[in-house]
């Protein structure tokens, strides 16, 4: 369009004749573009993991033996319909905090815990109530618990924070969620390793550092990514625990 025929627009004067149709067309196109983009982008988001807090089950109170891996586990001895004896629960506090401090003095002892469970196919984690109402020593002698060593494994998968994976946040894994996952792990929420292939019938395991330490800082750079790693695996009730051999962790290309 040459300059000669172009109607001349001045903002504070009425729209010149001949330009009105064009401007109207562009305006409609603009609104249509925004509407279409919203439906296309918003309507094609991936489904998040099938996991959630189960507030609808109500508060659960069970008793069991506390084990520190160092992330505390509860080996349930006295349960209920939902959480039968023999079950193992990972434990976390509200927000991005673990319950390490509260569980510390209870290692190997019987304790009663109370809180809301998180479910991802199975129930493996409980968020405890605050203070002693969440976890306290229980009467009675703690029975001996078995830990079954499963040898050294080389596995592929992703390190996540257990709580978000279990539905505290949806989506709760992957790279866009990495900073959040790191923050949880820094706060002692139990980290988990989600494997690409099932291992001993499970697709996840609690992951710790070597020799009863927490997940080492070096592993933080790998959180949320597809990695391979090696470590010693053990079974504690129905939860697997992997003791990471830190130098073996590596990114998988592609």
């Amino acid at each position: 369009m040459s300059r000669k025929e172009t109607p001349f627009f001045v903002g504070y004067l009425p729209l010149p004749r001949g330009l009105g149709g064009f401007v109207a067309l562009v305006s409609v196109a603009l609104v249509a573009l925004f509407a279409a983009a919203a439906l296309l982008i918003g309507g094609t988001q991936d489904a998040p993991q099938d996991a959630a807090f189960r507030f609808d089950y109500g508060r659960q109170t069970v008793t069991g033996v506390v084990e520190l891996t160092p992330y505390p586990l509860l080996r349930v001895t006295e349960g209920n319909d939902l959480i039968p004896p023999g079950k193992t629960l990972m434990m976390t506090a509200a927000g991005k905090s673990g319950v390490d401090m509260r569980a510390m003095g209870l290692e190997g002892k019987l304790a009663q815990v109370s809180g809301v469970v998180l479910e991802r196919g199975t129930i493996d984690m409980i968020q405890l109530r605050g203070g002693r109402r969440g976890i306290q020593a229980a009467e009675g002698e703690a029975p001996a618990m078995q830990t079954e060593p499963l040898g050294r494994w080389r596995l592929a998968g992703e390190i996540c924070d257990g709580k978000c994976l279990y539905g505290a946040m949806r989506p709760g894994r992957g790279l866009a969620h990495k900073a959040c996952a790191n923050l949880c792990i820094i706060g002692d929420v139990p980290p988990v390793f989600v494997t690409t292939q099932p291992v001993e019938g499970q697709d996840f395991m609690l992951i710790t550092g070597p020799d009863g330490t927490r997940l080492p800082k070096e592993a933080y750079d790998f959180v949320g990514q597809f990695v391979t790693l090696e470590g010693d695996l053990e079974r504690r009730g129905d939860v697997l625990v992997l003791r990471l051999d830190t130098p073996t962790i590596a990114l998988v290309d592609g």
Binding site: G43, P48, Q49, R170
Partner: peptide, 9 residues
């Protein structure tokens, strides 16, 4: 439109 089983937060 999405109607996910467990919706995105």
């Amino acid at each position: 439109l999405l109607s996910h089983e467990n919706p995105i937060n």
